[in-house]
Design a protein around this nucleic acid. Sequence first.
DNA 1: TTCTCTGCAAACGCTTTGCACGGAT
DNA 2: ATCCGTGCAAAGCGTTTGCAGAGAA
Lengths: 145, 145
Amino acid sequence: MIHSSNERYHLKLIENGIQSSFQRIQVLKYLYECEGHANAEDIYQALHGEIPTLSRTTIYNTLNLFLEKGLVRVISIDGVEKRYDVILADHGHFKCESCEKIFNFPVEMDRIPLEGLVGFQVTEKNVYFNGLCPDCIQTKNQKGK
Amino acid sequence: MIHSSNERYHLKLIENGIQSSFQRIQVLKYLYECEGHANAEDIYQALHGEIPTLSRTTIYNTLNLFLEKGLVRVISIDGVEKRYDVILADHGHFKCESCEKIFNFPVEMDRIPLEGLVGFQVTEKNVYFNGLCPDCIQTKNQKGK
DNA sequence: TTCTCTGCAAACGCTTTGCACGGAT
DNA sequence: ATCCGTGCAAAGCGTTTGCAGAGAA
């Protein structure tokens, strides 16, 4: 059901001063549904089945437009991949070194001490952790038996 | 004086199970001297004056070797650039949106609450902030007058 | 009609790969 | 003689650009 609850995303685009289109709605919808950790290729793979004529250029155009309008931000946990995040509330990102999934976790950014940044004007805060997620820890323990 | 205090870096390489070479010493030295925020091109530009035959391939080979041996880690504040960090003690990175310089600042990672990561095993913690550095704030204020 | 979204093709920049030379062991 | 570090050239990959056709306003 490709059209379910598209109205919500349609409005979100307009709210942010972005002209709505089918492709843009689908990209935004996908970003929300995957919890905002997709890269351009993920989005392309997810959508070009339903929109066979979809081009990667459109994905890139759309993501850059969203970025410019403040609808998404870029995250990059290890400097290799560029991923897009729609959830702008305070949260950190955790990347599992084994399964490579990215998890959100709440972080009260205000509790991070800023003594070292006197005189700086901070506009964005990112916290990136790496390690093993519960599933992968369990898998490893089972193998070890 | 290209050879000044190279012994220190020579030993550092051997300590980390890396066969020493002139190029590798120079790369490591540069990473320490620039406080660890260089990308491959920075290193190439800095060194190929003194080592005219130096190739970018060697820089990449060397950085990947260092990474593998745990001598450096990759940082990427905005997902666009891959930079290498040799300073492994607890610190955050601040990138100025105007002059694009990267600053270190001390962060006590242990004070970041982990309630959201129960069951996870955290091996690496990164804190990336963006904003304006004191110099650029001043420059902007002067323009505004 | 006019504007702009879309998407193909080509260009681009950074990084990796294949391979051969040369120095070190 | 063997091994490994180096570096040229070419390939690879993700992203951007130029441009033309389609669709919306």
